[in-house]
Design a protein around this nucleic acid. Structure first.
Length: 420
RNA sequence: GGAGGGGUGGCAGAGCGGUCAAAUGCAACGGACUGUAAAUCCGUCGACUUUAGUCUACGAAGGUUCAAAUCCUUCCCCCUCCA
């Protein structure tokens, strides 16, 4: 009945992760043999430590790795310490300042944390392992690299690669460093093959060129078939990439984004995306997903709640997910202030406090002018009562039992609390 | 090294001495309608005070002018062609 032999391939197909593979039949058979014999296949996922956390846009390959591991295989997570050290010049007018050692270390720790949410690290046969390409690039000799690796690449062919071609067509600057990127990544792949027997690379479809660079190098230099497997780019119904909310990235690590906001991101997903997102961002069995995505109209909100809860659970843990859900219920269904929302703690009532300042202190607005604008636009409420006066000051009777709920727009809340 | 073109708000991209806090599009945000969705419509989108102003902004630093994103000088960076 199944189209593929290996569990991994079938899962990927069923859940919408499968976009392209360098050798579908070959990789499937290889994985099947591994699964049957109980000997884990090794695959890797790469990421440059340019930031200190991954975000929702990175989840797709992370989830692929998660399933890869669940199928009994061994994931390697590669951080590009080497490339980050020289600074990635992509798409910018100015060369970015090189990352210093401390930032780099901080970023690598952050990525490790992000990876850890999705994969199990350790010493077991199929536990994930973190590797850094700095380890093999730091001592490399330029001439040796040119001779050993450079001979296998044809510039004619490199110029036809999508990543290069589009850049040239758009007349965007492209440094020699970037041009070399695919060689570095190809080398990574082969190095992981040599060190760990890694034969698979899993990534987003934008990495296709870099992946084939590795598989071709493997074939030419080591006479081994390496496999590349990519996911489609996940977009919402408007064709925009996923991962941004209110102009900010939706971060994986908790110090960058509260669990409640993470939850809300998934809660607010479009109707058309529910099924797709359930498949990609949760571990729920496919039958359950089929049932949920069949829900219509208002009922689809139940599916969204489950999506948000399950997605948050993977990334932030069950407790945080439950708390976020509870807060959401309080705020939206019971119309009460949730426990997790930000409070301004006052020792005593201040009779000379402008609402626009309160909004700023709650970090709901970034300037007093913005606060005024919001009030003018009927966006601000105190305890569900609309405020129309731009220069409104907090009144004593706003504080019910020592608490006042401040609302901006439909979804942003904060509170004032008298502590004494 | 030579010749030409260019660097403008989150992005794209007009403006080329005053009427420019800078057109337009996208993104974002608020309101209406809803289901904490989508679509649609209306509005907002530098800061401070207020509706009249003030300050800081058009790669960087100087200069010309009553007045500069717009002209001049130097510097930095990018693109194209030539060497």
């Amino acid at each position: 009945m199944s189209q593929f032999k290996s569990e991994f391939f079938n899962l990927m197909l069923e859940r919408g992760f499968y976009n392209q593979c360098t050798n579908e039949g070959g990789f499937d058979s290889y994985l099947y043999e591994c699964e049957k014999s109980g000997k884990p296949a090794v695959g890797y996922l790469g990421s440059d430590p340019t930031g200190d956390s991954l975000h929702v846009g990175h989840i797709v390959p992370l989830m692929m790795m998660r399933w890869f591991q669940k199928c009994g295989h061994k994931p390697l997570t590669l951080v590009g310490g080497a490339t980050a050290r020289i600074g990635d010049p992509s798409g910018k007018d100015k060369l970015r300042p090189f990352l210093d050692e401390a930032t780099l270390q901080h970023n690598i720790e952050g990525l490790k944390k992000s990876f850890g949410k999705f994969l199990k690290f350790g010493d077991g046969a199929n536990d994930a392992v973190m590797v850094d390409n700095w380890d093999w690039f730091k001592d490399i000799n330029y001439l040796a690299f040119l001779r050993d690796i450079g001979t296998y690449y044809s510039v004619n062919r490199m110029l036809t690669m999508d990543s290069v071609k589009t850049r040239l067509e758009r007349e965007q600057p492209m440094s020699f460093l970037e041009f070399n990127y695919m060689l570095l990544q190809g080398y990574d792949f082969c190095e992981l093959y040599k060190q760990y027997g890694c034969r698979a690379q899993i990534a987003g479809s934008d990495q296709w060129g870099n992946i084939t660079s590795g598989t071709e190098l493997g074939r030419r230099k080591y006479d081994v078939e390496l496999f590349g497997f990519t996911s489609p780019i996940i977009t919402d119904s408007n064709g925009k990439k996923m991962g941004k909310s209110e102009g900010n990235a939706v971060w994986i690590n908790e110090e960058k984004l509260p669990a409640y906001d993470y939850y809300q991101y998934f809660r607010n997903i479009g109707d058309a995306e529910v099924g797709k997102c359930l498949r990609i961002y949760t571990d729920l069995p496919i039958d359950e997903i089929r049932r949920l995505e069949a829900l219509q109209d208002k009922e689809i909100n139940e599916a969204k709640k489950i999506l948000a809860f399950e997605a948050t659970k993977i990334c932030r843990g069950e407790e945080e997910a439950a708390a976020a859900q509870k807060t959401a219920t309080h705020v939206f269904e019971l119309k009460r202030t949730g426990e997790l929302l930000k409070f301004l703690d006052w020792e005593v009532y201040d009779d000379n406090k402008y609402l626009i300042d309160v909004l700023m202190e709650l970090q709901l607005t970034s300037s007093r002018g913005e606060g005024r604008r919001f009030i003018k636009q009927n966006a601000v409420k105190i305890n569900d009562i609309l405020v129309t006066d731009e220069l409104y000051k907090i009144q004593p009777n706003d504080l019910i039992n020592g608490e006042a709920k401040v609302q901006l727009g439909k979804k942003k809340f904060g509170g004032i609390r008298i502590t004494k």
